[in-house]
């Protein structure tokens, strides 16, 4: 069974994704899921989204993929137990300690390892399986051969982003704290009262995507070149049949911070494409025009978002 995992940055997005055929939607509680508060949800909204999804045969996962502070660990566990009682069928987590604790406290739940874990090889996947994970999201640097290799090494479920393979660049997220080194803001009231210093990796303090801004780079004394630190990932399509054949069982659409209309269109598009692949299609070229249009919208939104985040960063303290 191949599943489509879609974002729900708001209750409206949750409804749109379910209506368009997402098998699973994922939501982030305020202050716990590596996104600005505008793309996270209150507990009441999460409960409502869970009910909407379950009522239409879909599932809801809760993203608890920030790294807890040691002081705040118990709050993560308490929230997870409550969400499970409210209808969440699983969680997306990063911290290994949290993974093991949730496996013990909510044994029937589905545990995904977040991209924030920064895995880089098949032995990593085997480690997380040992630690109690059910599904691991693979780096979007991996091609079909690497997916097949990990499939042979472990029976852990395999999930990939709907992005094309990019094999270079700094490892983000999972091995990066550039943003919090450069800029910082305090918790906002809406994110709840928290008693520790945060960062993009720890909730609040959004990542300002400093890697996607323009930098000057060069050896000391030499003329610098202007560049970005990371290449943008492109929405994928042609790789879908190969990934499914290699054993990927879950495709994740990114974008809790995107407009609802864009997520609606993307879920509809990928629902069709995945259904065609499951039915045996090997070539999806007939979707090329629609893919190009969606890619264009994706890039335009991304550019706007980077500008917004950099403007915010400029307004915060060092």
């Amino acid at each position: 069974m191949v599943k489509l995992l879609a974002p729900a940055g708001s209750i409206e997005m949750a409804r749109a994704a379910v209506d368009e055929g997402a098998d699973i939607i994922y939501v982030g509680p305020l202050g716990f899921s590596r996104r600005p508060y505008e793309s996270e949800m209150s507990d009441d909204a999460i409960r409502e989204a869970a009910a909407y999804a379950r009522g239409r045969g879909a599932e809801l996962r809760v993203v608890l993929n920030t790294f807890p502070t040691p002081y705040d660990f118990g709050r993560f566990v308490d929230k997870a137990v409550r969400y499970a009682a409210d209808g969440a069928s699983g969680f997306i987590v990063t911290d290994i300690g949290l993974l093991r604790t949730l496996r013990r406290e909510i044994p029937d739940t589905v545990l995904h390892v977040s991209i924030g874990s920064g895995i880089s090889n098949l032995a990593d996947a085997a480690f997380y399986r040992d630690a109690g994970a059910d599904v691991i999201i693979l780096p979007y640097r991996w091609d079909v051969a690497e997916i097949e290799a990990v499939r042979r090494a472990s029976d852990i479920g395999l999930e990939t982003f709907l992005f094309e393979t990019v094999q270079t660049g700094k490892l983000c997220p999972g091995k990066c704290i550039m943003s919090s080194y450069l800029r910082f803001r305090d918790w906002k009231e809406i994110e709840g009262s928290r008693d520790f210093h945060g960062s993009a990796n720890r909730g609040a303090k959004e990542c300002y995507r400093v890697c996607q801004a323009n930098w000057e780079f060069g050896a000391a004394g030499a003329a610098p070149v202007e560049l970005k630190l990371r290449r943008d990932a492109r929405l994928m399509l042609a790789q879908l049949p190969g990934f499914v054949a290699a054993g990927v069982t879950c495709f994740k659409l990114s974008g809790r911070e995107r407009p609802v209309g864009m997520i609606r269109d993307l879920v509809r598009f990928y629902r069709r494409a995945i259904d065609e692949v499951v039915a045996g299609a090997q070539n999806l070229d007939h979707h090329a025009a629609e893919l190009a249009e969606l890619r264009g919208r994706w890039v335009r939104e991304k550019t706007k978002r980077v500008d917004t985040l950099m403007d915010r960063a400029a307004s915060y303290a060092k």
């Binding site: 502070t69 300690g97 093991r100 924030g116």
Partner: peptide, 14 residues
């Protein structure tokens, strides 16, 4: 340093 150690619970697992 790149082991992503943030919590005592993770330290216990390790």
């Amino acid at each position: 340093v790149f082991g992503n150690l943030y919590t005592h619970e993770t330290a216990k697992v390790l």
